[in-house]
């Protein structure tokens, strides 16, 4: 236990004082604040007398000059932070010849990997919480409307899922830092995987969906809905889809079901504007996504755990 705490303390100090992290922190703060500034300018035009959750709109409105909203910005940056904190966790210890000296100390071997993961997770938590706090504070000043209790809970949910999303990328990059002996290889590999999952997964899912259930303008609604569902299910392989859907449900209470097309259909067919979902219902809808994200993180972490504790320490 004392071994774990010692590793944790050292790694956390390293993380928080490393140039890599400070640069990233400055970038993210700047980008986050810029996003929210633009949003606050245009928020008035997106709000009318019937809008229920005004404060939370801060997080969901995309500005006129800025093509993306705050959650999109988070889904872009959190993986980078996770990768930056984890990609050289183990292989840098190896290449700096610290690893065998470290493992010759009276600690269990898993203390090293647990300590590193926990330190990374704490760093991500600090980053996300402080960023959301800054953004909320700024927003409060600029629009002057305090958040309601439910909105605060939804923001907490958003923070939690963002940290979880970061934990996944951290666990994945730590895994690659064990598998690949060179830091450059593991960094490139994790970034390649991130690009694939983040930017190309929607296209891939679309392609497969259209190939399996072809749709055109003459297709029935039923067929279009099937196509949409298949495409969504395929793209849920990517954690960024899972994150995006969860955030959507949490922060857009009016939008309810993540399947937007079905939503539209129901709106058009019933002619009713849907009532916002309650927090409990939002959580229920996002439950599968949440569990999938936790499971993905747990898989990555346990594979790295097994690989690292079973690994033979060789002389060379």
């Amino acid at each position: 236990m004392s071994g774990l705490m010692s590793v944790f303390r050292k790694e956390l100090t390293d993380n928080l004082s490393s140039k890599r992290f400070l640069i990233l922190l400055a970038l993210i703060y700047l980008a986050g604040i810029a996003t929210i500034y633009v949003v606050a300018q245009s928020i008035r035009s997106s709000v009318d007398a019937n809008t229920q959750f005004i404060f939370i709109r801060l997080f969901t409105t995309s500005g006129e000059d800025l093509p993306f909203s705050f959650p999109f910005f988070m889904s872009l940056f959190i993986p980078i932070v996770g990768i930056a904190l984890g990609f050289d966790a183990i292989n840098s210890e190896r290449s700096s010849r610290n690893l065998s000296r470290l493992l010759a100390q009276p600690i269990y071997r898993d203390a090293v990997i647990n300590g590193k993961f926990l330190a990374g997770l704490t760093t991500i938590t600090i980053l996300v919480v402080s960023l959301v706090a800054i953004v909320s504070g700024m927003g409060l000043r600029m629009i002057g409307i305090p958040p309601g209790a439910e909105e605060i809970l939804r923001i907490f949910g958003f923070i939690f899922i963002s940290i979880l999303y970061g934990a996944f990328w951290l666990a994945l990059s730590i895994l690659f830092s064990i598998v690949f002996k060179r830091t450059a290889t593991s960094a490139l590999f994790t970034i390649a995987l991130w690009i694939l999952l983040f930017f190309f997964m929607p296209f891939i899912a679309n392609g497969i969906g259209n190939a399996m259930i072809p749709v055109n303008e003459n297709s029935t609604l039923e067929l279009a809905a099937k196509n949409d569902e298949l495409t969504r299910n395929i793209s849920r392989i990517s954690p960024s889809t899972l994150y995006g859907e969860t955030v959507q449900v949490l922060l857009y209470p009016e939008m309810g079901n993540p399947s937007a097309l079905l939503m539209m259909i129901s709106i058009y067919s019933s002619g009713l504007i849907p009532r916002p979902l309650s927090l409990l219902q939002s959580l229920l809808i996002t439950w599968p996504q949440l569990v999938s994200l936790i499971a993905l993180t747990a898989i990555c972490f346990s594979v790295s755990y097994i690989l690292f504790t079973r690994e033979e320490i060789r002389s060379t």
């Binding site: 000296r101 010759a104 100390q105």
Partner: peptide, 25 residues
């Protein structure tokens, strides 16, 4: 154990490196 061609954390001082070992012990 002193491994062949031992490595230390280059961005820490000698004392900080030993501090870590002491904490691990």
């Amino acid at each position: 154990y002193l491994p062949e061609r031992v490595g230390f954390y280059e961005d820490l001082t000698a004392r900080q490196n030993l501090d870590y070992t002491a904490a691990l012990n």
